[in-house]
């Protein structure tokens, strides 16, 4: 069990009034699973992803990542956890525009305290793995959207995280580039990587081993990932 959410609630304050965004989420994910999350806009997918990615902590309920309770951790401890366990891929890539591809990819290693030489070596290897070995010194604005997303995947993978979180990774891409990204995800999944991916497109969700649906902040019941939590 790499991660486990038990009766997780998340409220946002609108003014002074708390607005529930996630309600009673129960979810457990085994190592190596490839999971897609679908749902209408505003249903709370990104909020759920932020919780899983340790970018935020639940209002109530318990979240265990690799056996650690995330809810009690402070800012710096969360940063360390993200750095070690999680690779992020965003819809808008979020590459730093003034840095070359290789420097962008090396960023998580910098925060992990890896030496300069090793950072560069590992970043280049990661770029080669996503098929961008010849473009290591390109700036983001010299790369296509699909290439940018592949740089972002390389950045997510370079630190050997246990979990890859992707929030609409193909949302800004055409079908061909999207398919390329999905191929890479498939490869990673085959290598045993745990992947959780948010998407709107059923064709993309179909690539995943399993699909969860979320509606108005609640996971639709019936999925096997929820069972043990509700029984308990």
């Amino acid at each position: 069990m790499i991660l486990e959410l038990k009766h997780v609630y998340k409220d946002y304050l609108r003014g002074k009034e708390p607005v529930p965004v996630l309600q009673d989420i129960c979810l457990s994910v085994e190592e190596g699973e490839y999971l897609a999350i679908m749902g209408p806009s505003g249903s709370g997918k990104t909020t759920l992803m932020n919780l899983i990615g340790c970018l935020d902590v639940p209002t109530s309920g318990e979240y265990l990542l690799d056996g650690k309770a995330v809810g009690e951790l402070n800012d710096n401890a969360l940063a360390e956890l993200r750095n070690h366990y999680i690779g992020f891929v965003f819809q808008n890539f979020y590459l730093l525009p003034k840095m070359s591809a290789v420097d962008n990819v090396a960023l998580p290693l910098l925060y992990a305290g890896v030496s300069q030489k090793e950072r560069r070596e590992r970043a280049i290897a990661a770029l080669e793995a996503v098929g961008l070995g010849e473009r290591i010194n390109f700036l983001p604005n010299q790369l296509s959207g699909g290439q940018c997303q592949r740089v972002a995947i390389a950045r997510a993978m370079v630190g050997n995280p246990k979990l890859l979180l992707a929030d609409e990774p193909t949302g800004a891409l055409d079908t061909a580039s999207g398919n390329q990204i999905m191929e890479i995800f498939q490869q990673l999944s085959d290598q045993g990587m745990t992947i959780i991916m948010i998407t709107h497109e059923p064709s993309i969700a179909a690539c995943a081993g399993q699909t969860l649906h979320i509606l108005d902040g609640q996971l639709l019941t019936g999925a096997e990932n929820q069972e043990d939590c509700h029984e308990a």
Partner: peptide
């Protein structure tokens, strides 16, 4: 802001 947010998401601590 987004640069800072990204760096924090990737594991940069406050101090950095």
């Amino acid at each position: 802001t987004s640069e800072i947010g990204l760096k924090k998401a990737l594991g940069a601590k406050k101090r950095r």
